[in-house]
């Protein structure tokens, strides 16, 4: 009988993160050099450039005093093109994230590299996490580049440097955008674990995105109307109905992202629901909140996005652990 080395026990040995670094570096390098990344960047530039250019055109004509003029580049929706840059991001980011993740695991399987890589001294944990972080880093680089381009264009065309607080709000917005991308990246990774066919997994991820983007707002309002009493008698009743609508809408990561962005980039935002007259007492309409107050306002949205990302990733992780590696 062969002598046993190492202690006995039921726990597996070794860190689950062994090999995480090489997997991350490879994924990151692969993404950055891939043709797909070029296409995605092109897509982002085309869809991002028009709203930014249009809003810059309009902002150049603004004469009134606005202490947050720079942030308006992100949020203003000019008449000529009724979508703002932020709205464009709301659907660009999911598509980018899905594009980066939909074939993460199943392509390894189809290329028959999975069993060879897993026969190296790493756990599946490291492979999946490395792929996720590699995708997230790629997304972060792309969004940061986009963000810098917008800031640079603003500097050039408005001839006005952003104030420190505007840069800080902009940076927070960038982090929110990366978290939003993380949710969709985790979702597409999940589908890439579930489905062996890359086409099926891409379709499912895009289908889920379309569901949340187009259908869910309608479904949420239909449910809200269904639950609302036929006649609203008091402000409390109205608020309750409104609250239900908001809660339902916030199941969509897009809603969470929009609210976070509105809170960050429109410093005047105090609440996402209606305010009662009692709450309005002492409020100066249109006065901006300080950054820390805005952060407190959107904190639930940010944690919601991060929690969603972790939950979806955990689901992908559990399924991947149980998957058979053989072809």
């Amino acid at each position: 009988m062969l002598p046993r080395r190492g202690p006995r026990g039921s726990k597996r040995e070794g860190s689950p993160f062994t090999g995480l670094g090489p997997v991350f570096m490879k994924e990151f390098a692969d993404h950055l050099s891939s043709a797909r990344m070029m296409v995605l960047m092109l897509f982002v530039i085309v869809f991002g450039a028009f709203p930014v250019a249009a809003s810059l055109q309009q902002l150049r004509t603004v004469t009134e005093q606005d202490s947050y003029l720079f942030l308006r580049i992100f949020t203003s929706a000019p008449e000529s093109l009724p979508i703002s840059f932020v709205f464009a991001l709301n659907f660009i980011i999911p598509i980018m994230a899905i594009g980066l993740g939909f074939d993460a695991v199943n392509s390894e399987f189809n290329r028959r590299t999975l069993s060879r890589v897993l026969s190296q001294p790493i756990y599946r944990d490291a492979l999946l996490l490395g792929k996720f972080l590699g995708g997230l880093a790629t997304l972060a680089v792309a969004l940061a580049a986009l963000w810098l381009i917008v800031f640079g264009a603003g500097l050039l065309l408005l001839g006005l440097p952003p104030r420190g607080v505007e840069v800080a709000r902009g940076a927070c917005f960038l982090l929110a955008a990366i978290a939003y991308g993380g949710v969709w990246l985790a979702a597409s990774l999940l589908f890439s674990v579930i489905f062996r066919s890359t086409a099926t997994s891409a379709l499912c991820a895009l289908g889920l995105w379309l569901f949340f983007f187009l259908l869910w707002p309608m479904i949420a309002s239909a449910i809200t109307i269904g639950f609302a009493p036929s006649q609203i008698h008091s402000a409390e009743q109205y608020l309750a109905v409104e609250q239900l609508g908001l809660v339902l809408a916030r199941f969509s990561p897009g809603t969470l992202f929009s609210e976070a962005v509105v809170g960050l980039l429109n410093p005047e935002t105090r609440t996402f629901a209606s305010m009662l007259p009692a709450q309005m007492r002492g409020v100066i309409p249109g006065a901006p909140l300080p950054l820390d107050q805005s952060l407190i306002l959107i904190w639930p949205q940010i944690t919601g996005l991060i929690a969603g990302m972790i939950v979806v990733f955990a689901a992908a992780y559990v399924i991947f652990q149980r998957e058979e590696v053989r072809a």
């Binding site: 002598p3 190492g6 040995e13």
Partner: peptide
């Protein structure tokens, strides 16, 4: 038992 290791509990050593 592969080279003295248990592939279930010590897969990294085996691999």
């Amino acid at each position: 038992n592969v080279l003295g290791f248990d592939p279930v509990r010590q897969p990294l050593q085996v691999k």
